[in-house]
């Protein structure tokens, strides 16, 4: 399968999930559910790599994507737009997608996966809250927290279906996707997220601005991920190439920015 076919698979899956989450009012006021392409790429990595993919796993993927849609949606809530219709419905959109994930798994039924994903959502929500707590931690500890936020849900899904061999790639890949979004947010909105505020307080980044810190993190993580993917004994060559292309897009973006600077 070449890259175009793999992209087509991803697009089809995304459209399928968006159709299942379609809600007229939510669409009108809050737009489509937010499922980042990068997130979906890592959730579906085993499928893209040709793993046996029965309907039950496909439905579970839908549920996992719904969880991400719920949590991504709630990340849009801010302090400024209190009680606007858009903000009110954004809260409810996340709750609706949460309910839909539970309903999807209850229908299969896969109650064990409900348990596993619920534990992951609880852990992820705890870690998201920790970003707001005024506590000093080392960079390694913050990295672990980010890893929990971004990847616990997908890792639980992979474990549930005995796809553990993908976990290392997925963990690193999902954190990289988050760092990429952090950088994009900084460049577009010129605002600091709680994670960036934490980063700039780390001694090891003294004297660096937010963009430089993110660039360094992205560069280091991209290099690590490239090594892991290249050396992976489970990934097919076309899939390796496809995944590396996306990682290298990140690296190239960093190089371009360095050039601009």
């Amino acid at each position: 399968m070449n890259a175009a076919i793999l992209e087509e698979h991803l697009l089809q899956s995304k459209n399928n999930i968006l159709t299942k989450l379609h809600h007229r009012t939510l669409l009108q006021y809050t737009g489509q559910p937010i499922i980042f392409d990068g997130q979906l790429r890592y959730i579906l990595l085993p499928k893209l790599n040709g793993e046996h993919w029965p309907k039950k796993i496909e439905q579970a993927v839908n549920a996992v994507a719904m969880v991400y849609a719920a949590l991504n949606g709630h990340e849009q809530i801010n302090e400024q737009d209190a009680a606007t219709k858009r903000q009110q419905l954004t809260v409810l959109a996340g709750d609706y997608y949460s309910g839909m994930y539970y309903a999807t798994l209850a229908k299969i039924p896969d109650i064990e996966l409900v348990r596993s994903l619920s534990e992951a959502v609880a852990k992820s929500s705890e870690s998201r809250t920790v970003l707001y707590e005024p506590m000093k931690r080392s960079m390694d500890e913050w990295y672990k927290i980010l890893e929990v936020i971004e990847s616990t849900i997908t890792c639980r899904f992979l474990k549930h279906f005995n796809l553990d061999s993908y976990i290392e790639i997925v963990k690193n890949g999902l954190v990289l996707e988050r760092l990429k979004r952090e950088l994009q947010f900084l460049q577009e909105k010129h605002m600091k997220t709680p994670f960036l505020k934490i980063l700039e307080q780390q001694q090891e980044y003294a004297g660096m601005n937010n963009e430089q810190i993110l660039r360094r993190l992205i560069s280091n993580l991209s290099s690590r991920l490239i090594r892991i993917i290249t050396a992976s004994p489970i990934l097919q060559d076309e899939v390796k190439t496809f995944m590396l292309q996306h990682v290298e897009v990140n690296v190239e973006a960093q190089i371009t920015m360095k050039g601009v600077e």
Binding site: A70, L71, H74, E75, I77, N78, E79, A82, V91, G94, D95, S98, Y102, I111, E112, V114, R115, S118, E119, V121, A122, S125, E126, R128, T129, Y132
Partner: peptide, 21 residues
Amino acid sequence: NNRVAMYAGDFIFARALEYMT
């Protein structure tokens, strides 16, 4: 703040489902 309230609600929902399982 609003964000912490969102995370708190998500956390409690998740705990509810954990129990139910």
